[in-house]
Design a protein around this nucleic acid. Structure first.
Lengths: 207, 207
DNA sequence: CGGAATCTTGAGCGGCTTCAAAACCTGTGG
DNA sequence: CCACAGGTTTTGAAGCCGCTCAAGATTCCG
Protein backbone atom coordinates (compact mmCIF):
# COMPACT_ATOMS: atom_id res chain seq x y z
CA UNK A 1 0.00 0.00 0.00
CA UNK A 2 2.84 2.32 0.88
CA UNK A 3 4.61 0.92 -2.18
CA UNK A 4 1.55 1.49 -4.36
CA UNK A 5 1.75 5.17 -3.66
CA UNK A 6 5.44 5.21 -4.44
CA UNK A 7 4.88 3.57 -7.81
CA UNK A 8 2.05 5.92 -8.71
CA UNK A 9 3.98 8.99 -7.63
CA UNK A 10 7.00 7.85 -9.58
CA UNK A 11 4.89 7.62 -12.74
CA UNK A 12 3.64 11.18 -12.44
CA UNK A 13 4.87 14.04 -14.56
CA UNK A 14 5.25 17.43 -12.93
CA UNK A 15 4.41 20.62 -14.80
CA UNK A 16 4.50 24.27 -13.91
CA UNK A 17 2.01 26.88 -15.12
CA UNK A 18 2.20 30.60 -14.59
CA UNK A 19 -0.75 32.80 -13.70
CA UNK A 20 -3.66 32.79 -16.16
CA UNK A 21 -2.25 29.99 -18.27
CA UNK A 22 -4.77 27.40 -19.41
CA UNK A 23 -4.18 23.77 -18.47
CA UNK A 24 -7.12 21.95 -20.02
CA UNK A 25 -10.11 23.13 -22.03
CA UNK A 26 -13.76 22.39 -21.41
CA UNK A 27 -15.25 19.61 -23.59
CA UNK A 28 -11.92 18.43 -24.92
CA UNK A 29 -11.17 14.73 -24.73
CA UNK A 30 -9.90 13.93 -21.23
CA UNK A 31 -6.59 12.23 -21.87
CA UNK A 32 -4.86 13.18 -18.64
CA UNK A 33 -5.58 12.98 -14.94
CA UNK A 34 -4.33 15.98 -13.00
CA UNK A 35 -3.69 16.66 -9.33
CA UNK A 36 -2.90 20.13 -8.10
CA UNK A 37 0.34 20.21 -6.16
CA UNK A 38 0.89 23.89 -5.46
CA UNK A 39 -0.91 27.14 -6.18
CA UNK A 40 -4.53 27.20 -7.27
CA UNK A 41 -6.68 27.32 -10.36
CA UNK A 42 -10.17 28.16 -11.57
CA UNK A 43 -12.30 25.39 -13.03
CA UNK A 44 -15.01 26.92 -15.19
CA UNK A 45 -17.66 26.23 -17.78
CA UNK A 46 -19.20 28.69 -20.22
CA UNK A 47 -22.75 29.69 -21.10
CA UNK A 48 -24.08 29.72 -24.66
CA UNK A 49 -23.47 33.46 -24.84
CA UNK A 50 -19.87 33.08 -23.74
CA UNK A 51 -20.04 34.10 -20.09
CA UNK A 52 -17.71 32.19 -17.80
CA UNK A 53 -19.20 30.22 -14.90
CA UNK A 54 -16.83 29.15 -12.14
CA UNK A 55 -17.54 25.58 -11.16
CA UNK A 56 -14.93 25.65 -8.45
CA UNK A 57 -11.58 26.79 -7.18
CA UNK A 58 -9.08 23.91 -7.12
CA UNK A 59 -6.35 23.85 -4.50
CA UNK A 60 -3.48 21.47 -3.69
CA UNK A 61 -4.79 17.94 -3.36
CA UNK A 62 -7.71 18.48 -5.73
CA UNK A 63 -7.94 16.45 -8.92
CA UNK A 64 -9.53 16.90 -12.33
CA UNK A 65 -9.78 14.77 -15.43
CA UNK A 66 -11.41 11.91 -13.55
CA UNK A 67 -12.99 10.78 -16.81
CA UNK A 68 -9.65 9.15 -17.59
CA UNK A 69 -10.74 6.25 -15.39
CA UNK A 70 -13.33 5.17 -17.96
CA UNK A 71 -12.60 2.67 -20.70
CA UNK A 72 -13.90 5.08 -23.33
CA UNK A 73 -12.57 8.37 -22.11
CA UNK A 74 -15.00 11.25 -21.64
CA UNK A 75 -14.42 14.99 -21.72
CA UNK A 76 -13.19 17.60 -19.32
CA UNK A 77 -16.22 19.23 -17.74
CA UNK A 78 -14.51 22.57 -17.39
CA UNK A 79 -11.60 24.73 -18.42
CA UNK A 80 -8.77 24.83 -15.89
CA UNK A 81 -6.87 28.09 -15.67
CA UNK A 82 -4.05 28.86 -13.24
CA UNK A 83 -4.87 31.71 -10.88
CA UNK A 84 -1.32 32.14 -9.65
CA UNK A 85 1.87 30.22 -10.37
CA UNK A 86 0.80 26.63 -10.04
CA UNK A 87 2.35 23.20 -10.30
CA UNK A 88 0.41 20.06 -11.12
CA UNK A 89 1.13 16.37 -11.47
CA UNK A 90 -0.43 14.45 -14.31
CA UNK A 91 -0.68 10.96 -15.72
CA UNK A 92 -1.54 10.04 -19.28
CA UNK A 93 -4.69 8.12 -20.04
CA UNK A 94 -3.00 4.81 -20.87
CA UNK A 95 -0.96 4.97 -17.72
CA UNK A 96 -3.90 5.70 -15.47
CA UNK A 97 -5.83 2.80 -16.87
CA UNK A 98 -2.91 0.46 -16.21
CA UNK A 99 -2.38 1.77 -12.71
CA UNK A 100 -6.09 1.61 -11.93
CA UNK A 101 -6.35 -2.04 -12.88
CA UNK A 102 -3.15 -2.87 -11.02
CA UNK A 103 -4.21 -0.92 -7.92
CA UNK A 104 -7.99 -0.95 -7.40
CA UNK A 105 -7.68 1.50 -4.54
CA UNK A 106 -6.70 4.12 -7.10
CA UNK A 107 -9.93 3.63 -9.04
CA UNK A 108 -11.86 3.77 -5.79
CA UNK A 109 -10.31 7.11 -5.00
CA UNK A 110 -11.46 8.33 -8.39
CA UNK A 111 -14.96 7.20 -7.54
CA UNK A 112 -14.79 8.95 -4.18
CA UNK A 113 -13.77 12.19 -5.87
CA UNK A 114 -16.56 11.92 -8.41
CA UNK A 115 -19.17 11.34 -5.70
CA UNK A 116 -17.91 14.23 -3.61
CA UNK A 117 -18.20 16.36 -6.70
CA UNK A 118 -21.84 15.37 -7.14
CA UNK A 119 -22.53 16.17 -3.50
CA UNK A 120 -20.92 19.60 -3.85
CA UNK A 121 -22.97 20.38 -6.91
CA UNK A 122 -26.18 19.34 -5.19
CA UNK A 123 -25.32 21.53 -2.22
CA UNK A 124 -24.58 24.49 -4.44
CA UNK A 125 -27.78 23.96 -6.38
CA UNK A 126 -29.91 23.88 -3.25
CA UNK A 127 -28.16 27.01 -1.99
CA UNK A 128 -28.72 28.79 -5.27
CA UNK A 129 -32.43 28.09 -5.17
CA UNK A 130 -33.10 28.66 -1.49
CA UNK A 131 -30.58 31.14 -0.13
CA UNK A 132 -30.17 34.87 -0.70
CA UNK A 133 -27.33 36.41 -2.65
CA UNK A 134 -25.84 37.62 0.61
CA UNK A 135 -25.75 34.17 2.15
CA UNK A 136 -24.28 32.63 -0.97
CA UNK A 137 -21.44 35.13 -1.22
CA UNK A 138 -20.69 34.80 2.49
CA UNK A 139 -20.65 31.04 2.18
CA UNK A 140 -18.44 31.09 -0.91
CA UNK A 141 -15.95 33.39 0.80
CA UNK A 142 -15.87 31.26 3.92
CA UNK A 143 -15.26 28.14 1.90
CA UNK A 144 -12.43 29.83 0.03
CA UNK A 145 -10.95 30.63 3.40
CA UNK A 146 -11.05 27.10 4.77
CA UNK A 147 -9.79 25.58 1.53
CA UNK A 148 -6.62 27.17 0.31
CA UNK A 149 -6.62 30.29 2.43
CA UNK A 150 -3.36 31.52 3.93
CA UNK A 151 -3.57 31.69 7.69
CA UNK A 152 -2.13 34.98 8.94
CA UNK A 153 -2.02 36.30 12.51
CA UNK A 154 -4.59 38.92 11.53
CA UNK A 155 -7.00 36.56 9.69
CA UNK A 156 -7.30 34.31 6.66
CA UNK A 157 -6.12 35.64 3.34
CA UNK A 158 -7.61 34.54 0.04
CA UNK A 159 -6.59 35.34 -3.53
CA UNK A 160 -9.83 36.15 -5.28
CA UNK A 161 -11.10 38.84 -7.58
CA UNK A 162 -14.60 40.17 -7.04
CA UNK A 163 -15.55 38.89 -10.44
CA UNK A 164 -14.54 35.33 -9.56
CA UNK A 165 -16.19 35.52 -6.17
CA UNK A 166 -19.37 36.66 -7.88
CA UNK A 167 -19.30 33.76 -10.28
CA UNK A 168 -18.61 31.25 -7.51
CA UNK A 169 -21.62 32.52 -5.59
CA UNK A 170 -23.79 32.84 -8.71
CA UNK A 171 -24.28 36.55 -8.23
CA UNK A 172 -23.55 39.57 -10.40
CA UNK A 173 -20.19 41.28 -10.05
CA UNK A 174 -21.94 44.36 -8.66
CA UNK A 175 -23.79 42.72 -5.82
CA UNK A 176 -20.62 40.89 -4.85
CA UNK A 177 -18.76 44.20 -4.75
CA UNK A 178 -21.49 45.89 -2.70
CA UNK A 179 -21.53 43.05 -0.16
CA UNK A 180 -17.76 43.02 0.20
CA UNK A 181 -17.54 46.76 0.78
CA UNK A 182 -20.42 46.51 3.26
CA UNK A 183 -18.55 43.84 5.21
CA UNK A 184 -15.38 45.85 5.03
CA UNK A 185 -17.16 48.81 6.63
CA UNK A 186 -18.32 46.50 9.39
CA UNK A 187 -14.74 45.33 9.98
CA UNK A 188 -15.50 41.74 9.10
CA UNK A 189 -12.88 41.71 6.36
CA UNK A 190 -10.41 43.81 4.41
CA UNK A 191 -10.35 44.00 0.65
CA UNK A 192 -7.61 44.92 -1.72
CA UNK A 193 -7.30 44.30 -5.42
CA UNK A 194 -7.47 40.55 -5.98
CA UNK A 195 -7.20 39.66 -2.31
CA UNK A 196 -9.53 39.42 0.68
CA UNK A 197 -8.47 39.18 4.28
CA UNK A 198 -11.20 37.57 6.35
CA UNK A 199 -10.91 38.85 9.89
CA UNK A 200 -13.89 37.03 11.33
CA UNK A 201 -15.36 34.04 9.49
CA UNK A 202 -17.99 33.66 12.22
CA UNK A 203 -19.44 37.15 11.79
CA UNK A 204 -19.31 36.64 8.04
CA UNK A 205 -21.54 33.57 8.16
CA UNK A 206 -23.69 34.96 10.94
CA UNK A 207 -24.64 38.09 8.99
CA UNK B 1 -18.80 -11.07 -19.68
CA UNK B 2 -22.22 -12.43 -20.56
CA UNK B 3 -21.86 -14.67 -17.50
CA UNK B 4 -20.88 -11.72 -15.30
CA UNK B 5 -24.21 -10.08 -16.00
CA UNK B 6 -26.03 -13.30 -15.22
CA UNK B 7 -24.31 -13.62 -11.85
CA UNK B 8 -25.02 -10.02 -10.95
CA UNK B 9 -28.63 -10.23 -12.02
CA UNK B 10 -29.10 -13.41 -10.08
CA UNK B 11 -27.87 -11.71 -6.91
CA UNK B 12 -30.39 -8.87 -7.20
CA UNK B 13 -33.48 -8.58 -5.09
CA UNK B 14 -36.63 -7.27 -6.72
CA UNK B 15 -39.01 -5.00 -4.84
CA UNK B 16 -42.27 -3.30 -5.73
CA UNK B 17 -43.34 0.13 -4.48
CA UNK B 18 -46.68 1.77 -4.98
CA UNK B 19 -47.18 5.42 -5.85
CA UNK B 20 -45.76 7.95 -3.38
CA UNK B 21 -43.98 5.36 -1.28
CA UNK B 22 -40.49 6.29 -0.16
CA UNK B 23 -37.60 4.03 -1.11
CA UNK B 24 -34.57 5.71 0.44
CA UNK B 25 -34.14 8.87 2.44
CA UNK B 26 -31.74 11.73 1.84
CA UNK B 27 -28.58 11.67 4.01
CA UNK B 28 -29.16 8.17 5.34
CA UNK B 29 -26.28 5.74 5.12
CA UNK B 30 -26.20 4.26 1.63
CA UNK B 31 -26.35 0.52 2.25
CA UNK B 32 -27.99 -0.51 -0.98
CA UNK B 33 -27.48 0.05 -4.68
CA UNK B 34 -30.74 0.41 -6.61
CA UNK B 35 -31.64 0.20 -10.28
CA UNK B 36 -35.07 1.19 -11.50
CA UNK B 37 -36.71 -1.60 -13.47
CA UNK B 38 -40.20 -0.29 -14.16
CA UNK B 39 -42.17 2.86 -13.42
CA UNK B 40 -40.47 6.04 -12.31
CA UNK B 41 -39.52 7.97 -9.21
CA UNK B 42 -38.56 11.41 -7.96
CA UNK B 43 -35.10 11.94 -6.52
CA UNK B 44 -35.12 15.03 -4.34
CA UNK B 45 -33.21 16.99 -1.75
CA UNK B 46 -34.59 19.51 0.73
CA UNK B 47 -33.77 23.10 1.62
CA UNK B 48 -33.13 24.24 5.17
CA UNK B 49 -36.69 25.51 5.39
CA UNK B 50 -38.10 22.20 4.27
CA UNK B 51 -38.94 22.86 0.63
CA UNK B 52 -38.40 19.93 -1.69
CA UNK B 53 -35.96 20.30 -4.60
CA UNK B 54 -36.20 17.73 -7.37
CA UNK B 55 -32.74 16.62 -8.38
CA UNK B 56 -34.06 14.40 -11.10
CA UNK B 57 -36.68 12.02 -12.37
CA UNK B 58 -35.39 8.45 -12.45
CA UNK B 59 -36.66 6.03 -15.08
CA UNK B 60 -35.96 2.37 -15.91
CA UNK B 61 -32.24 1.81 -16.23
CA UNK B 62 -31.28 4.61 -13.86
CA UNK B 63 -29.40 3.82 -10.67
CA UNK B 64 -29.02 5.41 -7.26
CA UNK B 65 -27.03 4.58 -4.16
CA UNK B 66 -23.73 4.63 -6.05
CA UNK B 67 -21.97 5.47 -2.80
CA UNK B 68 -22.15 1.74 -2.02
CA UNK B 69 -19.10 1.31 -4.22
CA UNK B 70 -16.90 3.03 -1.65
CA UNK B 71 -15.06 1.17 1.07
CA UNK B 72 -16.49 3.49 3.70
CA UNK B 73 -20.04 3.92 2.51
CA UNK B 74 -21.40 7.42 2.04
CA UNK B 75 -24.94 8.71 2.14
CA UNK B 76 -27.83 8.91 -0.27
CA UNK B 77 -27.78 12.36 -1.83
CA UNK B 78 -31.55 12.48 -2.16
CA UNK B 79 -34.85 10.98 -1.14
CA UNK B 80 -36.29 8.57 -3.68
CA UNK B 81 -40.08 8.49 -3.89
CA UNK B 82 -42.12 6.41 -6.33
CA UNK B 83 -44.24 8.53 -8.67
CA UNK B 84 -46.34 5.62 -9.90
CA UNK B 85 -46.21 1.91 -9.20
CA UNK B 86 -42.54 1.09 -9.55
CA UNK B 87 -40.30 -1.94 -9.31
CA UNK B 88 -36.60 -1.76 -8.51
CA UNK B 89 -33.71 -4.17 -8.15
CA UNK B 90 -31.28 -3.74 -5.32
CA UNK B 91 -28.09 -5.22 -3.92
CA UNK B 92 -26.86 -4.93 -0.36
CA UNK B 93 -23.65 -3.11 0.41
CA UNK B 94 -21.55 -6.18 1.21
CA UNK B 95 -22.70 -7.89 -1.92
CA UNK B 96 -21.93 -4.94 -4.17
CA UNK B 97 -18.45 -4.66 -2.76
CA UNK B 98 -17.80 -8.34 -3.43
CA UNK B 99 -19.23 -8.16 -6.93
CA UNK B 100 -17.28 -4.99 -7.69
CA UNK B 101 -13.95 -6.54 -6.77
CA UNK B 102 -14.79 -9.73 -8.65
CA UNK B 103 -15.98 -7.84 -11.73
CA UNK B 104 -14.12 -4.56 -12.24
CA UNK B 105 -16.44 -3.63 -15.10
CA UNK B 106 -19.20 -3.24 -12.53
CA UNK B 107 -17.21 -0.65 -10.61
CA UNK B 108 -16.40 1.11 -13.83
CA UNK B 109 -20.09 1.37 -14.62
CA UNK B 110 -20.58 2.96 -11.23
CA UNK B 111 -17.89 5.48 -12.08
CA UNK B 112 -19.51 6.19 -15.42
CA UNK B 113 -22.85 6.86 -13.73
CA UNK B 114 -21.25 9.17 -11.19
CA UNK B 115 -19.49 11.16 -13.89
CA UNK B 116 -22.63 11.48 -15.97
CA UNK B 117 -24.34 12.75 -12.88
CA UNK B 118 -21.72 15.45 -12.43
CA UNK B 119 -22.09 16.46 -16.06
CA UNK B 120 -25.86 16.72 -15.70
CA UNK B 121 -25.54 18.88 -12.62
CA UNK B 122 -23.09 21.19 -14.34
CA UNK B 123 -25.43 21.52 -17.30
CA UNK B 124 -28.38 22.30 -15.07
CA UNK B 125 -26.35 24.81 -13.11
CA UNK B 126 -25.27 26.66 -16.23
CA UNK B 127 -28.86 26.66 -17.48
CA UNK B 128 -30.13 27.98 -14.17
CA UNK B 129 -27.72 30.90 -14.26
CA UNK B 130 -27.92 31.79 -17.92
CA UNK B 131 -31.33 30.80 -19.27
CA UNK B 132 -34.76 32.26 -18.67
CA UNK B 133 -37.50 30.51 -16.74
CA UNK B 134 -39.29 29.85 -20.00
CA UNK B 135 -36.33 28.09 -21.56
CA UNK B 136 -35.69 26.02 -18.46
CA UNK B 137 -39.26 24.76 -18.22
CA UNK B 138 -39.35 23.97 -21.93
CA UNK B 139 -36.07 22.11 -21.66
CA UNK B 140 -37.17 20.18 -18.58
CA UNK B 141 -40.40 19.12 -20.27
CA UNK B 142 -38.59 18.05 -23.42
CA UNK B 143 -36.14 15.99 -21.41
CA UNK B 144 -38.97 14.31 -19.55
CA UNK B 145 -40.43 13.44 -22.93
CA UNK B 146 -37.30 11.83 -24.32
CA UNK B 147 -36.55 9.95 -21.10
CA UNK B 148 -39.47 7.89 -19.89
CA UNK B 149 -42.22 9.47 -21.96
CA UNK B 150 -44.90 7.25 -23.48
CA UNK B 151 -44.96 7.55 -27.25
CA UNK B 152 -48.54 7.89 -28.49
CA UNK B 153 -49.77 8.48 -32.04
CA UNK B 154 -50.81 11.99 -31.01
CA UNK B 155 -47.57 12.94 -29.18
CA UNK B 156 -45.44 12.07 -26.18
CA UNK B 157 -47.16 11.66 -22.86
CA UNK B 158 -45.45 12.39 -19.54
CA UNK B 159 -46.63 11.85 -15.97
CA UNK B 160 -45.76 15.07 -14.20
CA UNK B 161 -47.47 17.48 -11.88
CA UNK B 162 -46.95 21.19 -12.38
CA UNK B 163 -45.33 21.34 -8.99
CA UNK B 164 -42.73 18.74 -9.90
CA UNK B 165 -42.12 20.31 -13.29
CA UNK B 166 -41.56 23.63 -11.56
CA UNK B 167 -39.03 22.13 -9.17
CA UNK B 168 -37.19 20.34 -11.98
CA UNK B 169 -36.86 23.61 -13.88
CA UNK B 170 -36.07 25.62 -10.73
CA UNK B 171 -39.07 27.86 -11.17
CA UNK B 172 -42.04 28.66 -8.99
CA UNK B 173 -45.18 26.57 -9.32
CA UNK B 174 -47.00 29.61 -10.67
CA UNK B 175 -44.71 30.46 -13.53
CA UNK B 176 -44.67 26.80 -14.54
CA UNK B 177 -48.46 26.80 -14.61
CA UNK B 178 -48.59 30.02 -16.60
CA UNK B 179 -46.15 28.71 -19.19
CA UNK B 180 -47.95 25.40 -19.59
CA UNK B 181 -51.32 27.04 -20.14
CA UNK B 182 -49.71 29.44 -22.60
CA UNK B 183 -48.28 26.54 -24.58
CA UNK B 184 -51.61 24.74 -24.42
CA UNK B 185 -53.34 27.74 -25.96
CA UNK B 186 -50.77 27.65 -28.74
CA UNK B 187 -51.50 23.98 -29.36
CA UNK B 188 -47.97 22.87 -28.51
CA UNK B 189 -49.22 20.54 -25.78
CA UNK B 190 -52.23 19.38 -23.81
CA UNK B 191 -52.40 19.38 -20.06
CA UNK B 192 -54.53 17.42 -17.70
CA UNK B 193 -54.12 16.79 -14.00
CA UNK B 194 -50.74 15.13 -13.46
CA UNK B 195 -50.12 14.50 -17.17
CA UNK B 196 -48.79 16.45 -20.12
CA UNK B 197 -49.12 15.43 -23.75
CA UNK B 198 -46.39 17.06 -25.81
CA UNK B 199 -47.70 17.46 -29.35
CA UNK B 200 -44.64 19.19 -30.77
CA UNK B 201 -41.31 19.01 -28.94
CA UNK B 202 -39.71 21.15 -31.68
CA UNK B 203 -42.04 24.11 -31.22
CA UNK B 204 -41.65 23.71 -27.47
CA UNK B 205 -37.89 24.16 -27.60
CA UNK B 206 -38.07 26.76 -30.36
CA UNK B 207 -40.34 29.07 -28.36
C1' DC C 1 3.06 58.55 -17.38
C1' DG C 2 -0.49 56.21 -19.87
C1' DG C 3 -3.35 52.53 -20.38
C1' DA C 4 -5.51 48.40 -18.86
C1' DA C 5 -7.63 45.91 -15.26
C1' DT C 6 -10.24 46.07 -11.36
C1' DC C 7 -13.44 47.99 -8.30
C1' DT C 8 -17.21 51.24 -6.66
C1' DT C 9 -21.58 53.58 -6.76
C1' DG C 10 -26.03 55.10 -8.27
C1' DA C 11 -30.34 54.82 -10.72
C1' DG C 12 -33.87 52.27 -12.96
C1' DC C 13 -36.21 48.44 -14.12
C1' DG C 14 -37.95 43.91 -14.98
C1' DG C 15 -38.61 38.91 -14.52
C1' DC C 16 -40.08 36.08 -11.07
C1' DT C 17 -41.84 35.20 -6.69
C1' DT C 18 -45.06 35.69 -3.26
C1' DC C 19 -49.58 35.92 -1.53
C1' DA C 20 -54.60 35.30 -1.79
C1' DA C 21 -58.50 33.38 -3.54
C1' DA C 22 -61.22 30.99 -6.51
C1' DA C 23 -62.03 27.21 -9.90
C1' DC C 24 -61.34 22.66 -10.90
C1' DC C 25 -60.82 17.75 -10.96
C1' DT C 26 -61.07 13.01 -8.71
C1' DG C 27 -61.90 9.54 -5.83
C1' DT C 28 -64.73 8.26 -1.66
C1' DG C 29 -68.44 7.23 1.10
C1' DG C 30 -72.93 7.91 2.37
C1' DC D 1 -75.95 9.28 -7.64
C1' DC D 2 -74.69 13.14 -5.30
C1' DA D 3 -72.06 15.73 -2.08
C1' DC D 4 -67.92 16.52 -0.07
C1' DA D 5 -63.08 16.83 1.00
C1' DG D 6 -58.48 16.62 -0.70
C1' DG D 7 -55.29 17.71 -3.77
C1' DT D 8 -54.22 20.28 -7.96
C1' DT D 9 -54.39 24.15 -11.08
C1' DT D 10 -55.44 28.79 -12.59
C1' DT D 11 -55.40 33.72 -12.34
C1' DG D 12 -54.63 38.35 -10.73
C1' DA D 13 -52.22 41.93 -8.27
C1' DA D 14 -48.33 43.63 -5.79
C1' DG D 15 -43.68 43.92 -4.70
C1' DC D 16 -38.88 42.99 -4.35
C1' DC D 17 -34.39 41.22 -5.05
C1' DG D 18 -30.84 41.36 -7.75
C1' DC D 19 -29.51 42.53 -12.60
C1' DT D 20 -28.31 45.71 -16.14
C1' DC D 21 -26.33 49.79 -17.67
C1' DA D 22 -23.43 53.84 -17.31
C1' DA D 23 -19.90 56.41 -15.36
C1' DG D 24 -16.31 57.27 -12.48
C1' DA D 25 -12.63 56.06 -9.15
C1' DT D 26 -8.79 53.39 -8.01
C1' DT D 27 -4.87 50.47 -8.46
C1' DC D 28 -1.35 48.26 -10.89
C1' DC D 29 2.33 47.65 -14.25
C1' DG D 30 5.06 48.22 -18.16
Amino acid sequence: MRSEIRVIEAAAVERRFSASQIIVICKERANRLFVVSEGCLNYSSVTDDGREILLGRLVPGDAFGIATFLSEPGCYLGTAKAVCDTTVFFWDYRLIRQLATAYPRLAENGMRIALRSVALHVERHVALVSKSARERVACALARLGTRGGRVLPTGIEVDIKNEDLASLADVSLFTASRLVTLWERKGILEKSRGRVLIRSPERLLAA
